[in-house]
Write a protein that binds this DNA or RNA. Structure first.
Lengths: 357, 357
DNA sequence: CATCGTAATCGAAACGATTCGATTCGCGAG
DNA sequence: CTCGCGAATCGAATCGTTTCGATTACGATG
C-alpha cells in the first residue's frame, strides 16, 4: 500500500502464504485442484499484500496468448464507426470473440508513414482486417510475417487467407432488376466512395477505371447489369447528408449536365445514402415513391426515416462479424480458417413503386 | 519458413548475425547507436530467418509497457458507437493517444457476471472509463487495485481520480433560459435514458429519484431551473427514432395524458433526439420553428436535417476525448493527472423562434 | 609511445508468470 | 504392517526481451 514500494508479485504472495509459487499460481488460474484451506491462505495473503492477480504481461509471455484480437479498419476510425453496418459487424465480432474472452484492439490503418504500423508492435493473438483500401495489403503483409491468424472482411486478400465476403454484385443486380421490372427506365445511382480520396462527383468511365474500393465497384457492376449506361454520382461516404447532396446533384440538375430528364428512380449503394436521397426528394416536393422511387442497400434499421420503410437489400452484417470472430476462434485452436460467403436478401419496403404514368 | 519449426527469436538472429543478443535488440529498438555494418548484418540475419521483430509480449513484460489503453464504454458497444458524441470523443482520444503511440482496447462493461471482468486480465497501461452506470464503480475498483492510471469521462468517479467533465446542468439551464426568453411557456422535454433499463416513458418524480445516469439528471435539472414543472418523456437512447417516438408521445397526445395543451417548444437532451422531434413535427404538419420550436444538445453535425440548422448547446466532444488522452499521457510519464472541466457554447440555429401569437 | 576518451559491443540479470514432471502425504486394501 | 495409489503441492525450467554496467577497440592527443 505504501507508495514507492514495488508491486507485489505472485512470489511475494506465495511466500506470505507459505506455499510455492506454483501453488499460488494455480489458485488464480484455477486449472488444477487446490485444497480449500490452501486457497484461502493464498487469497488472504494476496489481499494482505494488495495483490490484484497475475500480471497480464507476464502471463501472456508465458502462455503465448494475450487475449486480444486486433481489428484494422480501413480509413479513419471516426469514419468507420459512423457507418451502422460497420458498427453492427463489430458487434457480431465482439460477440463471437467474447466467447473466447478476447478483447478488441482498435488499430488504425496508419496514415502517417513515419511510424512503424501499429499492428507490428501490438500484442495481439490474431487480426481482423476490415475494408478495402490498398493499405490493407501492407497490414496483411506485416501480419503474415508475424505468423498471426488473420481474417479479412470484404477485402481483396487474394490467396490463402480466410475471407468473409458478400455477394455485392449479385445482390445489386437483383435490386436493380427489381427497379427495372417496376418499369423504371430513367434511373440514376449514388455510389459509395470510389477511392480513399472520397471525392464527391459524377461517375465517369475514367473514374471507374481508377477506382480502388472493391465494394463500390462490385455494387456498381451489379447495377450496370440492368442499367449499363445510367448516370451516377459517387458520395463522400455512407452518410445521410452525402446522400442528400448527391441526390440534389441528380434531381436539381437544372442544366441537365448529368441527365436529360429527371430520373424516376434512384438506386443508392447504402441505406444511409438512400435516406438522404429521400430527404432531398421531399425537400424538392417529390413524393416517394409516387414521384421518385428510391432503393438502398444494407438493410440496417435506417434511423430517421419516420414511417417509411426502405426497399433494400438486407445484408447479414451481424453474421458477417460473428463469422469472422468464429474463424478467428477456430484458428486460435489450431484448425484451419475457412472463407465464408454471405448473400443478401431482398426486402421490399414502401419506397419503390412503378413510375408515374 | 518450414512449418512446425519454432519461430525465430532475437537470440537466433543474433547468433546468425554473429553478434550478441543485446546488440541485436538495439538494432530493432534503435535506442543506442549501432554501427551501420552491424545493423545491416543483423537485419540481413533477421530477414533470412523470417524474424518479424521483437515479440511484443516479451517486450512488454520487460519494459512494463504494452502500449495499450483500455476504454470501458458503459452499456453495449453497439449502443455506444451509435452516438455521434461518443464517436467524436473516441476520435479525440485516439488522436491524443496516437501521439504516445498507444492503441485502444475496447472493453465492455461486462453484463455477464460469471466471468471475471475483462478489464482485470487485459494488458493495458491505463484505462479510460466512459459513461455513467453504476457498473463503472466496479470497473474503477478493479483498475485502482491494479494501480493503473485512470481517467473518467462524464462519470461519478468521486474522489481522487482525474475526471473530464461538462457543465451539463448550467448549459441546459442556459438553453432552457433562451427558450423561455423567446416567450415559450408551454414546453416539454425529451431526456436521455434515466437508467440502464432505457425505459421509454413519461418522466415522473419517482422515476427521477430512482434514476442513475448523471448526465441525464444534470441536464434535466438545468432545464427545470427555467421550467420546474414541465412535462417530459425519457427516450430509450440518443437516437433520431427515439426522438421521433418521444415527440409523437408529446405532440399527438390526444387524450391529454401528459399535457393539457400542445407545447410550443420541445427541449431535447441531444441533437439526435431533437432531429427526431423535428421529423415528428413535420409529419404532424407542424412547421419548425413557426408552430413548434425545438432545441437540442451536443452540437454535433446533425446528419439528415436537410437545410435546417439546429439551435443547440455545442459541447466540445473532440476536446473532451483529447483531454482524456492527454491526461493519460501525463500520468504515464509519472505526473499527476488533473481533472478537466469543459463548458458548452450556445449555438443559435433556425429551429427556435418566438411562439406563434 | 603511453594514455585517455568515446563509441560500439557484450554478458548477464531481471521482468513475473505458467507448467510439467517429481515428490510428498494420507489412507484404504491386501 | 506394508504397499500402492490418487490428490495436493513443490522445484525448476522457460517464455523472449530489454537494459545496465563492463569491456573492447580505436583514433587522437600530449
Amino acid at each position: 500500500m505504501s507508495t514507492g514500494t514495488r508491486r507485489a508479485t505472485i512470489a511475494d504472495v506465495a511466500r506470505e502464504a507459505g506455499v510455492s509459487t506454483s501453488t499460488a499460481s494455480v489458485v488464480f488460474s484455477g486449472k488444477v485442484n487446490v485444497a480449500d484451506a490452501t486457497r484461502e491462505k493464498v487469497l488472504a495473503a494476496a489481499a494482505a499484500l494488495g495483490y490484484a492477480g497475475p500480471d497480464p504481461r507476464a502471463a501472456s509471455l508465458r502462455t503465448g496468448r494475450s487475449g486480444i484480437v486486433g481489428v484494422v479498419l480501413g480509413g479513419e476510425l471516426r469514419h468507420a464507426f459512423l457507418d451502422p453496418v460497420t458498427t453492427v459487424m463489430m458487434d457480431g465480432l465482439t460477440d463471437a470473440l467474447a466467447s473466447i474472452s478476447a478483447g478488441i484492439l482498435l488499430l488504425r490503418d496508419d496514415p502517417r508513414d513515419d511510424e512503424p504500423p501499429p499492428i507490428a508492435d501490438a500484442p495481439v493473438d490474431a487480426v481482423v482486417l476490415i475494408g478495402c483500401s490498398t493499405r490493407t495489403r501492407d497490414a496483411l503483409d506485416v501480419v503474415r510475417q508475424r505468423g498471426l491468424p488473420v481474417v479479412v472482411i470484404e477485402g481483396d486478400a487474394g490467396d490463402d487467407v480466410p475471407q468473409v465476403s458478400l455477394d455485392n454484385r449479385e445482390a445489386s443486380a437483383r435490386i436493380a432488376q427489381h427497379v427495372f421490372q417496376l418499369g423504371h427506365r430513367r434511373v440514376a445511382t449514388i455510389t459509395l466512395p470510389l477511392d480513399p480520396s472520397r471525392e464527391r462527383a459524377p461517375i465517369t468511365p475514367r473514374r471507374v477505371i481508377e477506382a480502388t474500393v472493391p465494394v463500390t465497384l462490385d455494387r456498381l457492376s451489379g447495377f450496370r447489369e440492368a442499367y449499363p449506361d445510367a448516370p451516377g454520382v459517387s458520395a463522400g461516404g455512407s452518410l445521410v447528408d452525402e446522400g442528400y447532396i448527391a441526390a440534389r446533384m441528380l434531381l436539381a440538375d437544372d442544366e441537365g449536365v448529368l441527365l436529360d430528364e429527371r430520373p424516376t428512380a434512384i438506386v443508392a449503394q447504402s441505406d444511409l445514402l438512400a435516406v438522404g436521397a429521400i430527404r432531398a426528394a421531399e425537400e424538392l416536393g417529390l413524393r416517394v415513391p409516387d414521384d421518385l422511387s428510391v432503393v438502398g442497400f444494407d438493410g440496417i434499421a435506417a434511423d430517421g426515416l419516420g414511417s417509411l420503410v426502405l426497399t433494400t437489400m438486407s445484408q447479414p452484417a451481424l453474421a458477417k462479424g460473428r463469422a469472422a470472430g468464429e474463424q478467428i476462434a477456430r484458428m486460435l485452436e489450431g484448425e484451419r480458417g475457412e472463407s465464408v460467403h454471405f448473400t443478401c436478401e431482398f426486402r421490399e419496403g414502401g419506397t419503390a413503386a412503378p413510375p408515374a404514368a
